[in-house]
Structure formats: structure tokens, C-alpha cells
Simulated assay, not measured.
Amino acid sequence: MTLKSFIALWTHRYHKYTHISKAHFLGYRAWLHFKGVKSKLKTDQKLIAIIRTEHFGDIVAAEPISRYVRSLHPNAHIVWFVKPSFSELVSHNPSLDEVFKEFCVTERKTLLDTGIFDEVIQLQFTNNNHCPKCQVFVDNPVADRRNINIFNYFNFGNLLEVFAQTGDLIPEKAAFPGDDRPKLYLQDKHRQKVDSLNLKEPFIVLHCQSNYAPKDWPAEKWEQLVEWLADNYPYKIVEIGLKSNLSVKTGSYRNLCGQFTILETAEVIRRASYFIGLDSGPSHLGNATGTFGIILMGSLNDFPEYNPYSGGYGRQENAVFVRQKGLPCSQLSFEFVKDKVAGVIKLS
């Protein structure tokens, strides 16, 4: 072993074990906090944990569960576990008493192993309960018993129904028993930020890149779509997301990528006449805000046809799915997508 590789190895080990030590410390510190919370509860009040830490579209899709659990346990102290970067999605939810911003799954495992919670509702399964630094996976016995995992989960329903099953809230492959329309809790600060943009003309929001390449549509086709929309409709075209990969010259197009928090982005979508995007986090924002969605979807891994949405998008009351059975999204032709979009906008 060379000196350089030796140093690299021990640097990696130092960071790994420092991370693990911090996770255990934070877990026990959280235990002391929740022990204090529990000491103030009445004997008929439960301390309940709901765990859905990522991704932000999944958290939005799972939001109805917070209201359903509250209906089952009106007096409980309900805590939602989430990664800090997604905490704004649940921090204003009136059905929750507390938001726990999770450092990593080792911290969570340390905390839950103390048994401080009376009930733990896991809306995740083993394969997406993972800390890459600790190399720790957390099992969900309910999901394991029902054989729900990342390879087959869409065989069990939409995301809300899948999460309700992994949380042992509903029987296998059952419909969600409560209001299945996801909600967002937008605040004045989100509205004020979007007010500053002066988006006064009618506009269409586009979201052109997901966090998973097989769900994407090529950039050159998006560029064609923008030009076609600008030439044929009196709408401004606004792109949202983390970053843009488009090269567009029309004056009707505005790039707002990377400028907003998740809920500020939701407020932009809420004000749009239409949302055109992929099966990704922002499409769940569109579903929750009530903006009509035109969703480009294709076959995904082992799912030739699938529906991740509940509510208006899920029932296609407020959305159109643009897809051809057996084709991935990347292979949808521009003409096919254009015709579907024209069919929707023409009816307005």
C-alpha cells in the first residue's frame, strides 16, 4: 500500500466513524428530548412517529397519511421524521405536533431502539432506508412481511397506498380510506417571494429533468416543445427545477431553475395555467396545488404502466398522462407529445 492510499483509507475511516459516533450521540440526545415530551403527555396520549424522510415527491404523496393518523389518534403527539432539506414540506402541517430533522438512519435506529415511541409508522422499506456513510440499512418488518420493495412497489398501488401498506395502516393492496388528495401548507413568505417575480401573464410551467434518467425526455425535444408553445399559444413558458439543460431563444421563455425553495416552487406551479413535466417531485407539487397536469410518463423498470399519484392526478380528473405502453419516456416522439398537449390546451 502506498502512502497516498494509506492516508486516503484512514481519512475515509476517520470521517466514517466520526459520522457514526455523531449519529449515536444525536440519537441518544433525541431520546432524552422525547422522554421529556412523553413525561408531559397524559396516560391516554400516544407518542407516534411517522417516517418518510425523502424524496420530496414521496413526502408530498404521503401527506394524506398525516391527516389519517391524526383522525385515528386525535390526542396523540405525532412526530414526522424527515431529512432537513425537505423539512419545509411538513413543518407547517397542522396534523403534526413536531418535525424531527434526521441526521441519518443510524441516528434514527439508535432513537427507535430505545422504545420511546408507542407507535412507529414506517412509510419506507429496507432498500430506501439507507445511510451511505454508515453503510447501515434499517428494516421495515411490515414491508418485509408483505414483500414490498423498490423492485415491485408499484404492484401494490399508487405511492400513497404503498406507503400506507408499509406503515401497516391498510390491508394489502387496499384503497386508502381517507381523503387521498395531497395538500401543501403554503405560507405568506412563499407567496411574497413569487409576487416579486411579476408573473402576471398567463403562463405554463415546465419541469424537464427528474432525479432518475430513465424518466427523462430529451432536452432537444423539450426545446422543440417550448418553441412550438411560444409560436401557437399566448402563454409565457416558465421552467422550474434545480437547473436547466435547455437552450431556448424565444422571448416567451423564462428560466427560473435553482432560484426557489420547494414550497416557493409550489407557489409558482399553483399560479400556472398548466404544469407540463415528468413523473418527478414537481409533478406531485402540481397535484397538491391543483394545477392541471400534463405528465410525460413511460414504462419504468419492471412497470410497463404505473400510476404514482393519488387525488386529482391519480384519477386523471386534473391531469393527462402522456405515454405509450411499453415505451420509456425518452422514446416518446415530439409529435406524439405535441398532439397530447394540443388536445388539452385546445379545450381550455
Results as ranks from 00 to 15, higher is better:
110 T>C: 03
175 A>W: 09
205 V>T: 00
124 Q>V: 15
78 I>T: 12
149 N>V: 04
31 W>C: 12
310 S>M: 12
179 D>W: 09
60 V>N: 14
338 K>H: 08
282 P>M: 02
200 K>T: 15
80 W>L: 08
48 I>P: 05
126 T>V: 05
315 R>L: 03
320 V>H: 05
8 A>F: 04
258 G>Q: 09
98 E>C: 09
237 I>R: 06
150 I>E: 04
150 I>L: 02
128 N>V: 15
192 Q>N: 10
204 I>Y: 04
17 Y>D: 06
57 G>C: 00
2 T>E: 14
86 F>D: 02
239 E>C: 00
53 T>W: 14
239 E>L: 14
236 K>M: 12
67 R>G: 02
278 L>V: 10
154 F>M: 14
325 K>D: 03
323 R>F: 05
156 F>I: 05
85 S>C: 05
121 I>C: 12
325 K>E: 11
85 S>G: 11
261 T>V: 02
34 F>C: 01
189 K>M: 07
332 L>P: 01
118 D>F: 09
101 K>S: 11
25 F>R: 13
120 V>Q: 09
268 V>N: 10
103 F>Y: 15
305 E>I: 02
41 L>V: 11
245 N>M: 03
49 A>H: 12
158 N>C: 05
71 S>P: 03
104 C>Y: 10
309 Y>M: 13
157 G>D: 11
327 L>F: 00
89 L>R: 12
178 G>L: 03
39 S>E: 14
30 A>S: 13
39 S>W: 11
233 Y>T: 03
11 T>L: 02
244 S>D: 03
147 N>V: 04
43 T>E: 13
187 Q>T: 00
83 K>A: 14
190 H>A: 10
212 Y>W: 15
274 Y>T: 00
135 Q>M: 13
88 E>V: 06
172 E>T: 08
141 P>W: 04
157 G>H: 06
274 Y>R: 08
307 N>H: 03
153 Y>M: 15
252 S>P: 00
208 C>H: 09
296 L>Q: 02
31 W>E: 14
328 P>C: 04
61 A>C: 12
194 V>M: 01
221 K>W: 06
301 N>E: 15
162 V>G: 01
101 K>C: 10
168 D>L: 10
143 A>T: 08
160 L>D: 09
106 T>W: 09
271 R>M: 00
327 L>V: 11
170 I>F: 08
185 Y>V: 10
246 L>T: 04
211 N>F: 08
223 E>N: 03
257 C>M: 13
133 K>I: 15
233 Y>A: 01
188 D>F: 11
302 D>A: 09
49 A>N: 06
195 D>T: 13
9 L>Y: 12
317 E>L: 14
287 N>Q: 09
171 P>N: 04
235 Y>P: 09
294 I>Q: 02
112 L>C: 07
289 T>M: 12
46 K>F: 07
308 P>N: 04
41 L>D: 12
103 F>N: 05
86 F>G: 10
165 Q>Y: 01
17 Y>N: 08
327 L>C: 01
287 N>A: 14
334 F>L: 01
74 P>R: 00
81 F>K: 09
87 S>K: 12
62 A>H: 07
234 P>I: 09
79 V>Y: 06
47 L>D: 12
167 G>E: 05
216 D>F: 03
149 N>T: 15
272 A>R: 04
106 T>Y: 07
292 F>A: 02
228 W>R: 00
283 S>D: 02
186 L>D: 13
68 Y>K: 07
284 H>V: 01
